[in-house]
Simulated assay, not measured.
Amino acid sequence: MSRFPIIRIITKLLIPYILLFALYVQFHGDYGPGGGFQAGVIFASALILYGLVFGLEAIQRVAPPRIIEKGMALGVLVYAGTGVLTMSLGGQFLDYSVLEHHVLTQWHVPSGQHLGIFLVELGVGITVASVMTMIFYAFAGRKHAHDT
């Protein structure tokens, strides 16, 4: 793609807006359309676009595979951790109503329902963005039989 400077420049201009839109979808997903899955896919699409235009090595310097692997686990831990937290507070798995009447209200944290949905959607977003990026790494990094 180094022969196409316009594509490279347009990509550099678009990526911040794609990432900003992903954050918008993530943080407003509990109020309207969107949420963690959509935000994760949008975020990963920005990384994948960067990788398609600038190459696999460039994207792996920006988002190393080791960090992406940790992101996959972190997202699942945030999701499951929210459920374990609600169970430890006396509710059922992902019963956000128990978050309403506990220590969290002393720290001016949003209502229990809002906080629970936010944490679950955050976990989903991190997981989806990481998994989609790792799938791109797997496909973009594979060698053809005639390349060896």
Results as ranks from 00 to 15, higher is better:
residue 8 R to V: 10
residue 8 R to T: 08
residue 9 I to V: 13
residue 9 I to R: 13
residue 9 I to D: 09
residue 12 K to C: 10
residue 12 K to L: 14
residue 13 L to F: 15
residue 14 L to W: 15
residue 14 L to Q: 10
residue 14 L to S: 15
residue 15 I to M: 10
residue 15 I to R: 11
residue 15 I to Y: 14
residue 16 P to F: 14
residue 17 Y to E: 13
residue 18 I to G: 10
residue 18 I to D: 07
residue 20 L to A: 15
residue 20 L to I: 15
residue 23 L to C: 08
residue 24 Y to M: 04
residue 25 V to L: 07
residue 26 Q to M: 12
residue 27 F to C: 00
residue 28 H to C: 00
residue 29 G to S: 01
residue 29 G to L: 04
residue 30 D to F: 07
residue 30 D to L: 10
residue 30 D to W: 09
residue 34 G to I: 03
residue 34 G to E: 08
residue 34 G to A: 05
residue 34 G to Y: 06
residue 35 G to T: 03
residue 35 G to V: 04
residue 36 G to F: 10
residue 37 F to A: 07
residue 38 Q to W: 01
residue 39 A to F: 02
residue 39 A to N: 01
residue 39 A to G: 03
residue 41 V to F: 06
residue 41 V to I: 09
residue 41 V to G: 05
residue 41 V to M: 08
residue 42 I to A: 04
residue 43 F to Y: 09
residue 43 F to A: 08
residue 44 A to I: 05
residue 44 A to W: 02
residue 45 S to P: 06
residue 45 S to R: 09
residue 46 A to C: 03
residue 48 I to G: 07
residue 48 I to S: 03
residue 48 I to W: 05
residue 49 L to D: 10
residue 50 Y to H: 11
residue 50 Y to L: 07
residue 51 G to D: 11
residue 51 G to R: 13
residue 52 L to R: 11
residue 53 V to S: 04
residue 53 V to K: 08
residue 53 V to Y: 09
residue 54 F to L: 02
residue 54 F to C: 01
residue 56 L to R: 12
residue 57 E to V: 05
residue 59 I to N: 03
residue 59 I to F: 09
residue 60 Q to D: 09
residue 60 Q to I: 02
residue 60 Q to A: 04
residue 60 Q to P: 00
residue 61 R to M: 04
residue 61 R to N: 06
residue 62 V to N: 08
residue 63 A to I: 08
residue 64 P to H: 13
residue 65 P to W: 13
residue 65 P to A: 09
residue 66 R to L: 06
residue 66 R to Q: 12
residue 67 I to N: 11
residue 67 I to M: 14
residue 69 E to P: 00
residue 69 E to I: 10
residue 70 K to H: 07
residue 70 K to D: 03
